[in-house]
């Protein structure tokens, strides 16, 4: 379709491409390059990317940042811990989000928009403040402990804050809409007569669900899981406010390397390794997203 003239086309596609090239792609190349520099006491605090020797540029690659990353157990354990937290949280999100999405998709047409709005509404209020709210609930003299002690269930406050449990709660709480929405979008499209056909052929409800509904909603499950898992691996705010102090997640490591130690090459190397871990999930997500948008055409 020639909707626009050639110059118009170039403008429409060119402006956003140029913007994203400069502010999204080039920055990654810089991060990549700096991860191969060495730290030094200067401004900026890394060895220059290109040095000039006898009038020609010399590209010097240092592996010290990566060597550091793989020798100090702090980094490896942080990566593993981050993957574990993201995986557990994603599973919890799925466990809670799937039945919720299913219930919304099966509710009558009039109440569906209201329920969806209730799911999305918290998303419009500050993420930071919603995480903060859990401090008030989870801390030693917080609401949960107060209520449990008042009811006589416990006599000493439980240590809820600064635990893995608190981080799971925080991530599930913050990312639940991202799990529910793609699942709902998928489940809503299902043809109800398929379940009737399954029932007609003698499948009991649970079996019909496992054999018919679940396989069909696979794309929704994957999309939702990726939308939770990928950002959760690099999560910074939630573990900082709610999490343990003896075991930090990799997003925090990156931030600390950068702000506390002012070691930009190591911070960059940390970022590159996170990206390497996430490259498969991110590509998968992009493929799903593209297919979804093409299908809508």
């Amino acid at each position: 379709m020639r909707l626009t003239t050639a110059s118009g086309r170039r403008l429409v596609a060119g402006i956003p491409i140029l913007w994203l090239l400069v502010l999204f792609l080039v920055p990654f190349i810089i991060v990549f390059r700096i991860s191969f520099s060495e730290v030094r006491l200067a401004i900026p605090p890394y060895t220059p990317l290109l040095t000039w020797r006898h009038g020609s540029p010399v590209l010097q690659l240092h592996w010290s940042a990566y060597r550091f990353l793989f020798t100090d157990p702090l980094y490896i354990s942080s990566y593993l811990y981050s993957l574990k937290v993201a995986a557990v949280s994603t599973l919890c999100c799925l466990g809670l989000g799937y039945p919720m999405a299913y219930a919304i998709a099966r509710s009558d047409a009039a109440s569906r928009p209201v329920l969806l709005m209730l799911i999305v509404l918290p998303f419009w209020t500050s993420f930071l403040l919603r995480v903060y709210a859990w401090i008030g609930l989870l801390k030693n003299n917080g609401v949960i402990n107060n209520v449990l002690m008042y009811l006589g269930v416990i006599h000493h406050p439980l240590a809820l804050l600064q635990t893995d449990f608190a981080v799971y709660i925080g991530i599930v709480y913050s990312y639940l809409p991202f799990m529910i929405l793609p699942l709902y979008a998928n489940l809503e499209k299902h043809d109800g007569t398929l379940l009737e056909a399954a029932a007609d052929l003698g499948a009991r409800p649970l079996r019909a669900f496992v054999r018919v509904t679940l396989p069909q909603s696979f794309a929704g499950i994957v999309a939702g899981a990726l939308l939770v898992f990928i950002p959760a691996v690099g999560e910074y705010v939630i573990p900082t406010l709610l999490g343990r102090t003896d075991q930090i997640m990799i997003g925090r490591v990156l931030s600390d390397e950068f702000f506390e130690n002012r070691d930009w090459p190591v911070a960059s190397a940390v970022a590159i390794v996170i990206l390497l871990l996430l490259v498969v999930p991110i590509m998968l997500f992009q493929r799903l997203e593209r297919r979804e948008l093409e299908a809508a055409r």
Binding site: V31, L226, L227, I230, P231, V233, G234, E235, Y236, G251, L254, S255, F258, A267, S268, A271, I274, L275, L278, P281, I282, F285
Partner: peptide, 9 residues
């Protein structure tokens, strides 16, 4: 989906 720490850095 990009982790925010990476985008920020």
């Amino acid at each position: 989906v990009m982790p925010e720490v990476i985008t920020g850095l």
